[in-house]
């Protein structure tokens, strides 16, 4: 159960906000229609192009895998694709990772298939899988799977089977393993957002928290976000809570250590210049530089590597 909100601009120029409930039985039931100008703001959405491409691909019976780092806006993208497909009137099932049974029950309820046998007994996992597969082979419906990298093997195998049967589906994952279903689907990688977009998200987040951030503060905070909208909101919240800066979590890094060492290595040429000019001193200095660079390299490479876990 959840509450969703959409903002529409009507032909008359009036803006309306639809707030509706998403339930298990009915996909959505419109509850409130509000005229816009209300205090609530719709979240910024910058992945329009990707959304259109995905919707078009799904409508053309193709499946897709969307990958991107955590927080880069995958779930938002799935939601908007779901909204677009629902608007076009297609039945669909949105799946979040859970136990296989829960997932299958959720799909069954969203698509409206039976969860019980003719004798009134609850279907087993295999039974549910078959029932859903049967339904999908007879009807056009879409499966949208968020956080697909967390799916269990059984569900992945089942999805793979559905995929080879021609079932269109959208898998969204961050750094999935390069195997089975993930390898078979055509892939879109979500690119980091631009500086301007991240800045807008930060401004909106600041607005929602009711704090004023100067351009200088935003520029300072934005260093820690990369192109990641989740981090953009998080750093604003950290500023709001007055937390101290910790190590940035985005993934857009270039480790300059090899460049530094290569740059220093250039100076060992002095040794050969010394050799060429028959200057013992230059030769010695070049040798000393060579040894120093060797030591620096040894030390730099023996430093502990970046931890994959948070904190020290």
């Amino acid at each position: 159960m959840g509450i969703k909100q959409h903002r529409r601009k009507l032909a008359s120029g009036e803006e309306r906000t639809y707030v509706y409930e998403v339930s298990h039985e009915q996909r959505r039931s419109v509850a409130v229609v509000r005229n816009s100008g209300s205090d609530s703001v719709s979240p910024l959405f910058y992945r329009g192009e990707e959304k259109n491409r995905i919707v078009a691909a799904l409508k053309a019976d193709s499946s897709l895998l969307v990958i991107g780092e955590p927080g880069c806006g995958k779930t938002t993208l799935v939601d908007s694709v779901a909204a677009a497909l629902a608007e076009a009137g297609f039945p669909l099932a949105t799946i979040n990772p859970a136990t296989p049974k829960q997932i299958l029950l959720s799909i069954a309820s969203q698509l409206g298939t039976d969860t019980e046998s003719i004798e009134g007994k609850a279907l087993t996992v295999t039974g549910l899988m078959e029932a859903i597969a049967d339904f999908l082979s007879e009807n056009t419906a879409f499966l949208l799977i968020d956080d697909a990298h967390r799916l269990s093997v059984s569900i992945r195998c089942w999805l793979e089977e559905l995929h080879s049967g021609g079932q269109p589906m959208l898998l969204v994952a961050s750094r999935p393993p390069a195997k089975d279903i993930f390898l078979k689907l055509p892939r879109i990688e979500l690119q980091p957002l631009s500086h301007r977009q991240i800045r807008e998200i930060m401004q909106q987040a600041a607005g929602e928290l009711g704090i004023e951030l100067s351009a200088a503060q935003l520029a300072q905070l934005q260093q820690r976000c990369g192109g990641n909208p989740m981090l953009a909101k998080r750093v604003v919240r950290e500023e709001y809570l007055g937390l101290e800066e910790n190590s940035p979590d985005h993934t857009q890094w270039v480790d300059g250590t090899p460049f530094l060492i290569a740059g220093l290595m250039v100076f060992t040429i002095v040794r050969f210049i010394g050799l060429g000019l028959n200057s013992t001193s230059l030769y010695l200095i070049g040798g000393l530089v060579g040894v120093t660079v060797g030591i620096v390299r040894l030390l730099l490479y023996s430093l502990p590597k970046k931890s994959v876990r948070l904190g020290r």
Partner: peptide, 17 residues
């Protein structure tokens, strides 16, 4: 450093250091 790329150049790779 490689603007317009947003990737950030760092030395060393471990942020704790």
């Amino acid at each position: 450093a490689f603007y317009p790329s947003a990737a950030r150049l760092v030395i060393p790779g471990n942020p704790q250091l």
